[in-house]
Amino acid sequence: MSVLALLIPTSIGLGLLGLAAFLWSMRSGQYDDLRGSAERVLDSDDEPLPARAEEKGE
């Protein structure tokens, strides 16, 4: 049963890690525009969108 002393803290630690990751992603605004993020993946341009240099592309 001594293995439990290792396993339980590990499982809870991993859970906390997941929770922390979720809270971080929430704070950094990744849930603000779920539909937009889904669509952005399909944007074929590889350059970052608001690049001031690309004027002629349109």
Binding site: D33, L34, R35, G36, L49, P50, R52, E54, G57
Partner: peptide, 19 residues
């Protein structure tokens, strides 16, 4: 976003599709 990228006075623009 592309239209706004080279717009006078605009530094950055980010569209939000949900809102």
């Amino acid at each position: 976003e592309r239209a706004l990228a080279d717009c006078e006075g605009v530094v950055a623009a980010r569209a939000n599709l949900t809102l």
